[in-house]
Write a protein that binds this DNA or RNA. Structure first.
Lengths: 267, 267
DNA sequence: ACCTGAACACCGTTCAAGT
DNA sequence: ACCTGAACACCGTTCAAGT
């Protein structure tokens, strides 16, 4: 059998053909939706695939990163998740960096819009805490944003919009343009809810077989040990152990905002 | 020629042999220093190779990262730099993570020791500014430390020592253990000189062909534009453009230290 | 006992060929 | 015009074989 039927997509939206060395079945290639196999015998149903789009690619990527972190994210795995060949993704994102930028844009877009009817301090505080809630949903976002900044990439539109409205809140609150500039530097990535820890909580981890013995720990790092014991003790009444990240974040945020308020008064 | 001479390393420190299909030259394998080729004819000098060590591996890795960033760092490139096969590195570091930890340890060790004869605020301030100078020499250190924290790795000994002495300075300055705990969270990775920017200076970059037109920029992001113009203007008298990173870092550091000092007074 | 080449299981991306 | 398989140039690491 050597029949081939080509119909131009411009007229029909489909290309129909019978592959040369195949099983002789008629296949149809819709213009926008990838290949669909159609049975030539009557009654056999077509099994169409959801069309790929930038949104589908991004949400698959975000789901993958939410689950396994940014290390588990690869073009090949995203493609596999979508039941598609890796190269198909490159129709919708130019490369992996553009994919990362798209992911950042999507999650920064989840941050609540600014509340219009409060003072600057409350407005900033609420917004930053909303950003932090977003970041807890998407723990990978922190390092992705940082890596993109380090690569000296232009901030994505959603980040630009976020920063613009934050600057606007400071300005409306009576901050001089110079002080707003300093304020943005002081708040830094905390604006996006980053908590910038130097320690991670280790209490929920498997006991490390070659970890240091407690008495050696106390001898080498007496002040760290004192602090760790105090934190552990103060948390004994509360459920779990380790310190309250949310409290520490708000403590640092408020210390910063209070400092800025004081500066505004004297400038 | 089918002569092979094997001498046990336990007695001589060397293994001598003539490879079967080779040029017939006698070779010597020293126990600790890798293979050295020795000429059999008199007068020809041996050409020994500097023995590999953890220090040599680490300094090659640091040099590579200083030059091309952490993305340019790979086990294979380090090996190439040292004139060695990649697998030879695994004698001195168990894997890449241990290599990264070793690199962190080495550069954190470059931070000046604490000054003993000043008040807590000056001592912390000097030390943090020394950490920042280290970080400017090794810009990759920031992201490597962060990635290791995110991987929930135990801080390396040099980092532990650094944190311990910082806590000690606060304690000696009259801070309660609880307030020290909060202070460490407030200062976060700024303790290591991280500046935590959300913007990178873009003034020295090639003009992006598909960048936004200035008027569109001003329309979409009015507050960002106002701030950018103000910064550019205030810097016109000074050499170069963009803002003074060092000033902004110290501004944020001092605002934080002042806030902590005030809290110490009332707690 | 030490060292190392080849191999394995990945990765992002290019490119020519298929339809 | 769209899609895709094979290939390229990497990567960290395992492992059996060489000496």
């Amino acid at each position: 059998m050597d029949v081939r039927v080509y119909l131009s997509w411009e007229w029909t939206g489909w290309t129909l053909y019978i592959p040369p060395g195949g099983d002789g079945r008629l296949r149809a290639l819709p213009v926008r939706e990838g290949m669909v196999e159609m049975a030539t015998q009557a009654g056999a149903a077509a099994k169409p695939r959801a069309p790929l789009s930038k949104e589908r690619v991004l949400s698959a990527a975000i789901a993958l990163a939410d689950e396994g972190g940014v290390d588990a994210l690869s073009m090949r795995k995203i493609a596999q998740m979508l039941g598609v060949v890796p190269m198909a993704l490159y129709k919708h994102v130019a490369n992996k960096n553009e994919l990362l930028d798209g992911m950042i844009d999507a999650v920064v877009g989840e941050i609540d819009p600014p509340a219009g009817d409060t003072d600057w301090k409350t407005a900033i505080r609420r917004r930053v805490l909303s950003a932090r809630r977003m970041l807890l949903r998407h723990p990978w976002a922190c390092e992705v944003v940082e890596s993109r900044i380090k690569a000296r990439a232009m901030p994505t539109p959603a980040v630009m919009e976020y920063l613009d409205s934050m600057i606007g809140i400071f300005r409306a609150g009576g901050f001089s343009i110079d002080l707003v500039h300093h304020a943005m530097h002081v708040m830094g990535s905390r604006l996006l809810g980053f908590s910038q820890e130097l320690f991670e909580d280790t209490s929920d981890r498997e006991p490390d077989p070659d970890a240091m013995a407690p008495q050696e720990m106390a001898a080498r790092y007496p002040h760290v040990t004192e602090l760790a014991m105090a934190v552990a003790h103060s948390q004994e009444s509360v459920v779990g152990s380790g310190c309250d990240d949310q409290f520490e974040f708000e403590f640092a945020l408020d210390l910063t905002l209070d400092g800025l308020e004081r500066l505004r008064g004297t400038t």
